[in-house]
Design a protein around this nucleic acid. Structure first.
Lengths: 200, 200
DNA sequence: CAGTTCTGGTACTGACAAGTACCGGAACTG
DNA sequence: CAGTTCCGGTACTTGTCAGTACCAGAACTG
């Protein structure tokens, strides 16, 4: 329990560089082909520096993925266009192309990670899909509160539809998903399920 | 082009034994941890016998998975209860527990296969998810034809919802899916999307 | 019979990568 | 100063496993 006192202090900045390099590499080659040697090279670090912080490759990737999720979404930060359809359209529009590219690549890379253990799969799923579901849940609940969506709608279930189908597309079929397809899904499945009149 | 004539003929029965063993092992340990040595041991075969038929582990697993799909579903073979909801309920009820266990296990095992190449991913997806989607599409189209579902419904899109969410649950979240949950999804999402009045 | 290709089984090669062990040097404590 | 723990970098150990090479025997052709 005695935190050793002497010696050179650990540079927290190296953690960031290593995790960033891990995430980049994960998007490019996937978990299986990610090597700690390459992570070290890109981070400008030694392998010892990595293994001093994380006991295994799995823990390293887990930490890197965990960083992605960030804070849970808050309603105040979400789009507010006046209609649920508009809110969802705004939600699907990627903030920056880089963000979009990264989450797509990470999802692809995670496919191989999923096979390692349920524990890793859960963490990955939570980090990637969880915030997306929660954002939709908040938007839908607000639509219920303002009367756009009839009360009693099963928001929790419907909020899972597009994230699940997106994850399926990326992880299983391995095809990209574009915003038009997502909006088609919203018009054909999500809004009818919530008993919202279709547009046009 | 000259098919050599002499020599001991190849025993087609070994193909079956090897592919069965491959499928079994795939459900148990997944693609990454599947070794050709263990496949050979379970099939009571030599590794040479495997590699004489399939040039690589990937091709072997691909052949094993391809066997699963079988013939495309035909409307005459699908349940016909009089209502779309009843048909879907009958579709979800597994024919035999063994079938159910196997497809669940294979989906789990395939998670790691998906990361290998888009080609393998596509084959796996087609074999596993394709028939499920097609069955639902046929049932929904029949419901349209008999007037239970309004014309103009986007059957092709809605038919993908539960297969995608099932695959997502199995492959990404790695949790089992039970029939009650699927029927809840039918009542809350699928039927409303098709403009069918909810039961009760 | 001889010649060929199959069979299960074992042993081997070759490549790859996780994790460990050091190195010389840097940054801290006391 | 001495002592400790960090740093990047390199070399090494260790284990795994796909794929190959053989073997001795079996099943065929002619």
């Amino acid at each position: 329990m005695t935190t050793s006192t002497g010696g050179r202090p650990r540079d927290a900045g190296r953690d960031v560089a290593i995790l960033e390099a891990t995430l980049d590499l994960l998007t490019e080659v996937g978990y299986d082909d990610l090597t700690t040697a390459e992570v070290a090279r890109r981070a400008g670090a030694g392998k010892a520096t990595i293994y001093r912080r994380w006991p295994s490759k799995a823990e390293l990737v887990l930490a890197a993925v965990g960083r992605m999720g960030g804070d849970p979404p808050r309603l105040a930060d979400l789009p507010d266009t006046g209609t649920l359809r508009g809110d969802l359209a705004a939600l699907f529009r990627p903030q920056t192309p880089a963000d979009d590219e990264r989450s797509l690549g990470v999802m692809r890379g995670l496919t191989s990670l999923l096979s390692q253990s349920p524990e890793l799969a859960e963490a990955a799923s939570n980090a990637m899909v969880g915030p997306f579901v929660e954002s939709q849940r908040l938007l839908m609940q607000r639509a219920v509160d303002r009367g756009e969506v009839p009360d009693g709608a099963d928001v929790a279930t419907v909020a899972r539809v597009t994230p699940a189908m997106t994850a399926f597309r990326l992880a299983v079929e391995r095809r990209p998903v574009d915003v038009d397809e997502l909006m088609h899904l919203v018009d054909v499945v999500v809004l009818p399920a919530l008993r919202v009149a279709p547009p046009g």
